[in-house]
Computed example of a mutant assay.
Amino acid sequence: MATIGLDKLYYATITENESGEETYATPKPLAKAISAELSVELAEAILYADDGASEVVKEFKSGTLTLGIDDLKPEVAAELTGCTLDDNKVLVATSEDGAKPVAISFRARRSNGKYTYFWLYRVKFAPPATSLNTKGDSISFATPSIEGTIMRRNKAEKNGLHPWKAEVTEGADGVKAQTITDWYKKVYEPTITPKGA
């Protein structure tokens, strides 16, 4: 089913323990969403045998998330990009800035009025891109965009796999109402029965 909207763009900061496993803070609004473009890069291997492809393996390698937003508040920019907010509330970017990864969530409205919800578990952003134009005969908006690299998270689920994305559609068979109502209260943790249990 087609999507006809995008909203509720949130982020959650990440803290890591000694082994690198993530703990997520309470999600906070990032900005008003204009666009979200998600592209994925796969690692692929093909085994040829008897003059043909015998086995094909495709695994998630990384991804890119490009967000078009209405505005990026200095406090949010500091948390997303590693820039510093100085004592005068001026955002200062340095060549030594190092962004820490965050989790990102948004939802897309479907043509039936229901929503598909997303969590990207580990995204590391670069400083935002800005395009500015002088005012001419007509008014045109200039809005920032920010691009991040999507990575798998370090924390494995119960079968030892490392999620990079969670996605659910409201009203789909078997989806609990609680899953949807809790989506922005905390970063979604997969509930998976271990294999063989």
Rank of each mutant, 00 (worst) to 15 (best):
A2T: 13
T3Q: 15
G5F: 07
L6V: 13
L6Q: 11
D7K: 11
Y10D: 01
Y10P: 00
A12V: 12
A12Q: 11
T13V: 06
I14C: 11
N17S: 15
S19L: 09
E21G: 01
T23G: 02
T23V: 10
Y24N: 04
Y24L: 05
A25I: 05
P27D: 09
P27T: 09
K28D: 02
K28G: 04
K28I: 03
K28H: 05
P29W: 05
A31I: 07
A31M: 02
A33Q: 02
A33R: 00
A33T: 12
A33F: 02
I34W: 12
S35M: 06
E41Y: 14
L42H: 13
A43G: 10
E44M: 15
A45D: 11
I46Y: 06
I46D: 07
A49W: 04
D50F: 13
D51E: 13
A53T: 11
S54R: 08
S54K: 05
V57E: 14
V57G: 01
F60G: 09
F60V: 12
G63I: 12
T64W: 01
L65K: 08
T66Q: 08
D70K: 10
D71T: 14
K73Q: 12
K73H: 03
E75Y: 01
A77W: 01
A77V: 03
L80D: 07
G82R: 06
G82N: 04
G82W: 03
C83R: 12
T84Q: 07
T84W: 10
D87P: 03
N88S: 09
N88M: 04
K89W: 07
K89P: 02
L91C: 07
L91V: 09
A93C: 02
S95N: 15
E96W: 01
G98K: 13
A99N: 06
K100H: 04
I104N: 04
I104Q: 00
I104V: 14
S105W: 03
S105D: 00
R110F: 03
S111K: 14
N112T: 09
T116S: 04
Y117K: 04
F118P: 01
W119L: 08
L120M: 13
L120C: 13
V123G: 04
F125K: 00
F125R: 03
K135S: 14
G136S: 14
G136Y: 06
S138T: 12
S138R: 04
S140V: 15
F141I: 14
S145I: 05
E147W: 00
G148F: 03
M151T: 04
M151N: 01
R152G: 15
R153L: 07
N154E: 12
K155H: 08
N159L: 14
N159T: 10
P163I: 11
W164D: 08
W164F: 09
K165D: 08
V168G: 02
V168C: 15
E170C: 00
G171H: 09
G171L: 08
A172E: 13
D173W: 02
D173M: 03
D173L: 09
V175Q: 02
V175W: 00
Q178T: 13
Q178W: 02
T179N: 06
T179Q: 11
T179G: 01
D182N: 15
W183L: 00
Y188N: 10
Y188P: 01
Y188S: 07
E189S: 10
P190N: 06
P190Y: 03
T191M: 14
T193H: 11
K195H: 08
K195Y: 09
K195T: 11
K195E: 15
G196A: 10
